[in-house]
Design a protein around this nucleic acid. Sequence first.
DNA 1: TCTGGGGTCCTAGGACCC
DNA 2: TCTGGGGTCCTAGGACCC
Length: 425
Amino acid sequence: MVSVPLFALVDCNNFYVSCERVFAPKLRDEPVVVLSNNDGCIVARSNEVKALGVKMGSPYFQYRSLIEHRGVQVFSSNYTLYGDMSRRVMSVLAYFSPEVEVYSIDEAFLNLAGFATNTITDYGKKIRATVKQWTGIPVSIGIANTKTLAKVGAYIAKHSSKAGGVVTLLHPRYRERALAMTPVAEVWGIGRRLAPRMMGLGIQTALQLSRANERWIRKQMGVNGVRIVQELRGISCFPMQVARAPKKSITCSRSFGRPVTTLTEMQEAVAAYVSRAAEELREERAVVKELLVFMMTNRFNEKELQYHPHMTVTLPVATSNTGELIHQALQAVEKIFKTGYKYKKAGVIFTELLPENQTQMDMFDTTNRSRLGKLMAVVDRINTRFGSRSLQFAAQGITQPWHMKCDMRSPCYTTDWNQLLTVQA
DNA sequence: TCTGGGGTCCTAGGACCC
DNA sequence: TCTGGGGTCCTAGGACCC
């Protein structure tokens, strides 16, 4: 017998802020923000900061004076720390369900099909308490028959003071009440374009969306819209996805800490990004057949001359060798780089990925690929052990004056012996 | 002065073929 | 004036997610 679908969505509250607070407990009731790469945007806010009206994803400089005036603690993002904390949270969740789908750095779906529904909210509370106790991270949990409804539950749990962090939406009456409380813009899959359109057409809440005509939805929102509506009605259309699908592309791009104007610096930066992307490629046990290099001026500065070139390179043989990839990418850089512009950002995208054991040989290719592979494996091991860039290609540059800003980064408390937290007793 | 980064999927429209 | 029709494949752009 196939049991009724039952999902929990576990969502970490203000995740990056919570990670910083674990290691700086005195910030527990203080306003805190975490910035994006290059200290550009605000990507995580504590509740105190949300209450000040600071918008998610807004440019830091727009709120800088407010932030300073209110004594808000500011952190550059520390993805090494957040990635490690995320792994810890996910490993706790694995105790509570046979199937955990890690949906993002701060969210996971748990398959609870077959679990007793009359005690499921208490089970959710136990999960919540255990994650908090073992990792220090507070979470909100939604439990329902579909993933989209579980998301709604977690949204309500986060915003309701009496829910105790867990909201179950199994009873039709509760479900309707929850959907009526949820703005249509908060529904999973309704983004910044669709939300205003829906609202203009008289659909303000998730409940109204769930009652919309299916054919009309198909026309307005495509096939995915129909699935969303079905899910809101309690019919599961998005199953658990436990096995991680192989990646279809790998990107590495960064804004520069200051404008780049010379070919030499642009080449260094692109070489560094290729190197990072190639590490990920090897982690993925894949090789790449085609890559795209791009660079751009500051699109926000209307007074400056704009230039956003890109170039696609097809590699003679699919590879994951950093040296070869840098060589190819830098040729593209030379072709599209023009002097006279202030570049703000550059990047590389590996498209056309193949599993490394399916490499198509080129009969004119004389490179000894097995030796090259072993060399890269050794470099990766050394960099894992002694820190990234312990061994690097000269093309990446040594001082990297164009490197992004991250002046307010916290230590890597959990992944570097030299940065452990010290406690004075 | 100062505006992130990394993904996936869907669709419309053009190119091309018969 | 009148200017086929239908299928497939590819790609760019748009939408979404975190």
